[in-house]
Design a protein around this nucleic acid. Structure first.
Length: 256
DNA sequence: ATGGTTGCTTAGCAA
């Protein structure tokens, strides 16, 4: 199974590129983030024609997440289902082909110390609580998405320049580590040790041509799936050409 | 040098 995650930064603005990429990469399952569209206005028909079902948790203007799958997703769950804030569409999960897949759009956090920053850290705590509540470590689970955290210095183009940012702050890294301590493994790092692999480049300041990026999009696997992950890659080419997203797809191959 | 760019929505916010 080929499983991917991609923050498309508006599914409507990216529709042509998404369809072209699906045709070229032929993934079985794709987690999308930042749809920026309501569930009602999601392009179900065009994706169905391309061979994909969709489990969608949409929202107007901001956020919005989905799971595309060649087999029909079952048991779709939207949000955490906890007592916390439920106004931002940032999590959808579903059963696809024998495993549980989650598409997550972790809050960016805006600025360290801001209300949005607190919301980001709290959201990551809720994510860990959701894992504790909903799954056993033996379950085949893939948590995919824009985590808005570069886990280590090797995931940052210029660690000194990015020190203390919302994407690299020790508190954000610790919050992600607390999520992963449930029993998740960063699939990309199973296959690549070296620095210089990025999944996001700012639209501004010629960040992509200068390769000033960060690796903030991740596919995290439960132990049983980690042992079945035969390859991982970042599709850097998708940042090239006209009207790219600021993020590119991350792809893994699972022997399931 | 709190700059620069993109998307949604329509002037300002979010990233």
């Amino acid at each position: 199974m080929k499983l991917a995650t991609w923050n498309v930064n508006s599914v409507r603005a990216r529709e042509a590129r998404l369809l072209r990429w699906l045709e070229a990469a032929r993934p079985d399952v794709v987690c999308l983030q930042e749809l920026k569209v309501t569930t009602e206005a999601f392009p179900f028909e065009v994706l169905r024609a391309a061979g994909y079902f969709a489990a969608v948790h949409g929202q107007r203007t901001y956020n919005g997440v989905a799971i595309l799958s060649r087999v029909e997703p079952q048991d779709v769950e939207r949000g955490f289902g906890d007592e916390g804030d439920d106004t931002q569409a940032r999590l959808v999960s579903a059963q696809v082909g024998g495993l549980r897949v989650a598409s997550a759009y972790v809050p960016n956090g805006a600025e360290v110390g801001s209300e949005k920053w607190s919301y980001k850290l709290e959201w990551l705590r809720r994510l860990r609580a959701w894992l504790d509540r909903r799954f056993a470590q033996t379950d085949p689970l893939a948590l995919c998405g824009d985590f808005n955290v570069a886990p280590e210095a090797r995931d940052v183009c210029d660690p000194a320049a990015w020190e203390g940012s919302v994407l690299t702050h020790p508190d954000a890294r610790q919050a992600l580590q607390d999520v992963r301590a449930w029993g998740l493994v960063d699939a990309f790092r199973l296959h690549h040790e070296e620095p210089g692999f990025f999944s996001w480049w700012d639209y501004r300041m010629l960040a992509f041509p200068k390769n000033k990026g960060l690796r903030i999009d991740h596919i995290d696997l439960s132990p049983s799936l980690a042992g079945r992950c035969s390859a991982a890659a970042i599709d850097r080419n998708e940042r090239k050409g006209k009207q790219p997203s600021d993020h590119v797809p991350v792809v893994v191959e699972l022997d399931v």
